[in-house]
Nucleic acid binder design. Structure first.
Length: 85
DNA sequence: TAGTTGACCGGAA
DNA sequence: ATTCCGGCCAACT
């Protein structure tokens, strides 16, 4: 199979259940490179695919990194909307 | 091909 | 708690 790290990152991010959030480190870990957290940020930042809930990926501090589809403000609102209702 | 950049992480001051 | 530094990886120039 030998899927590229980028492909795995997209799949993992796409498989994140609603109402749940994963850290960049977790995504990188599931993708196969727990040390490529920087790359995950770079990859997701270039990702403009609505099928990928990149807003469910946050920093290990519990804070957020960024969002290419609206901004931190929208990202926060989406997470709250999915968690609470 | 080499160098720089970035939605990061962990440790130290 | 905040700020600064080194390390790692993929994408971009």
């Amino acid at each position: 199979m030998a899927k590229t790290f980028t492909e795995k990152v997209y799949e993992v991010t796409r498989k994140i259940p609603k109402g749940s959030t994963l850290t960049y480190k977790e995504v990188a870990r599931k993708a196969g490179n727990p040390k490529a957290v920087r790359a995950v940020g770079t990859i997701l930042s270039k990702n403009f695919n609505p099928e990928i809930p990149c807003h469910r990926v946050i920093r290990s501090d519990g804070k957020m990194g960024g969002y290419n589809r609206g901004g931190i403000d929208v990202k926060m609102k989406i997470l709250k909307s999915e968690q609470n209702g």
